[in-house]
Each structure stands twice: as C-alpha cells, then as structure tokens.
Write a protein that binds this DNA or RNA. Sequence first.
DNA 1: CATGATACATACTTTGGGGTAAGTACTTGT
DNA 2: ACAAGTACTTACCCCAAAGTATGTATCATG
Lengths: 125, 125
Amino acid sequence: MTKIKESSTYNANREIVLQECPVTYVMNKIGGHWKPIILYHLLSGSKRYSEIKRAMPHISEKMLIQHLKQLENDNLLTREAKPVVPPYVTYTLTESGKELDSVIKAMSMWAFKDMKRNRVEEPVC
Amino acid sequence: MTKIKESSTYNANREIVLQECPVTYVMNKIGGHWKPIILYHLLSGSKRYSEIKRAMPHISEKMLIQHLKQLENDNLLTREAKPVVPPYVTYTLTESGKELDSVIKAMSMWAFKDMKRNRVEEPVC
DNA sequence: CATGATACATACTTTGGGGTAAGTACTTGT
DNA sequence: ACAAGTACTTACCCCAAAGTATGTATCATG
C-alpha cells in the first residue's frame, strides 16, 4: 500500500474541492480504473478473493488487495476471514456499497447508449 | 497536452478492460478529478471559458483547456469561437454530454447520503 | 518430499497526470 | 505608453498511481 503524502499541492487542492463538490467526493471513493469494476462484480453478491481475481484477469494482485482495503476503509465493503487453512476470505458490499448500484447502473446505461452512438461494438461484461 | 505512450502495459490492460466493461468506458471519458466538475458546471447551460474558470478557482488553466479539449474529442461538448477581439469562446454540452446528468445526479445523491451516514458536513456546491 | 492452492506482503521501478510559471496576440481603457 | 482582459500555449518538474517481481505461511495431496 503506497503511502500518500499529505503535504502536496495536489492534496491541498483536492481537499478544497472535496468540500465543494459531491461528484469529487464520489470520485475519491470509486475513482480509478479498478474500483468500479470490483464493485460491479460484488454487486451480484459476495465473492471470495480468488473469485474476484478470476473475474478480473488483468488486474495485478497488488492492485486488487490495495483497492479492496481502500474500499473497506471507505465502508463500501466488509472483509470476512474464516480461520481455516487454506484461508477462506469473502468480500461483501455494505449498505453504502450496495446503494452505489444506482451510480453503476446509470454509468452502464450511458455507456451502452454512447457506444451505439459512436458505433463501438458492444462488450460482453 | 501531455502525449500518451501507446505501448505501455497500462494501456494494454486498459484497452482490454475497455472491451469488457461499460463502467470503465465511462471512467475513461469522465474520470479524473476535473472532468466531472466541468460537466457539472456546464449542465446548467453553455458557458464562456472565463466563466468556467471563475467557477473553478482551483483548477490551473492548463488542466482546464486540456480537459475541455479531451471532452470535445470525446463528443461530450462543442466549442464555438466568435472571431472577435477580445476572443469570445463558449462551451456547450452535446446530447451525449447532457445525458450524463443522470450519472452526475446519481453520484450526487449517493454522495449526500454517504456524507450524512459518515457525518461529514454537507458542502455548498 | 515437493508441489500446489490460498490470500496476501514487500521492494523496486516506471509513467503519466497534474502543478507552476511564463509567454503570446490582439484590443480597449486611462 | 502601459496595464488589463481573453483564451490559450509551452516548457519543465514532481510525485503518486500503477506495474513487475518475488516472498510468506499453512496445510492437503500425490
């Protein structure tokens, strides 16, 4: 987990904007390339670590746990580890996390519309 | 405008994911810290360059035009320049851009709910 | 006895997004 | 004559996000 320097101008700006815009508030929680996709996969139900990994073949393990931890810190999902060997860890969306489905759905609907408009072939997701 | 190297693993991964996930498709068009905020301000109607600038005091001019150009390339807004001095340039959302309000609204609604839940003071936006 | 599965952790490097600062062209106002 | 406004452009630098690679603990199974 890369640590974040608090003293940069970037972060100063971000904090100011955070106080001013709900959209930025959301982007700070689900922004980036991987977080929305993780959420997307968890919206269909709780999943084991390895299940998520298999569902997203192109993410590195480092990125996956890193974002899972961030999402956990942001109260979007919970982690449950059964003390067995081999380890059995499941990730489940919280209420906050589940309510994001309206956002994810709005995004998906817009995406499909826009792909059609720009004649991009539709994906299988 | 910083050029993007096409040959990186990052971009390879991104292109693969792009073909698989509508959410990533959206994130590539409106992701980052500034684009959603620009869109947010244009949703209330066409604006001059200087108006957008004044509405977003914390963005640098470089970032502003850079993102305006990217949004234009992505067909989310159009640029109209009147050939007068001093220059008079207006930015207007396209149909695609306007339709993003469902996404922006879903985000805002979730944000306010989540802020309440986490007892963050509500912003004035 | 060694391989594989599971769920990570850690070190090291790259890169591209963003910041800062300065310049440009043209005209209007004082 | 000089500053100010408008809409950019350009150059240079920094750092945080992402990638690559390897290590760890535990047990089951061949």
